[in-house]
Amino acid sequence: MRLLCHNMLQCHIKGVVNGYPLKIEAEKVETRETDYEPDFLRHIFPRIQWDALREAAAAMGVDDLPESVSEEMLEDESFLKQFHHALLEVHLEQGALVCPETGRKFVVSDGIPNLLLREDEC
């Protein structure tokens, strides 16, 4: 699971109000090189919740993302490369996504998060 995917997920248990962002418990992280596409990064940037990405990247051992960002930075190649790496090249292979409100753990196994809810959760 890439952090682009993580950035879109929340705890969807019925009644949970602050289920975003899910905290990452990383057991195994892999890095895989991916083509650098600045146009795509500019396309996706407005939809990214930056604090969630930054926190998730740090939990995966990538701690060089700036604290705050602006549209102008999308012209800065060194920033775009950091953004690209955190968003698309770092994969959570084993671990868990944890709901910030309830502590419910969603297991990530072989890179695939399991967000199936039990009957009493939905």
């Binding site: 699971m1 890439r2 682009l4 995917c5 199936l116 809810l117």
Partner: peptide
Amino acid sequence: PIDFLRCD
């Protein structure tokens, strides 16, 4: 560039 998610 494919991720998977188990969800109903």
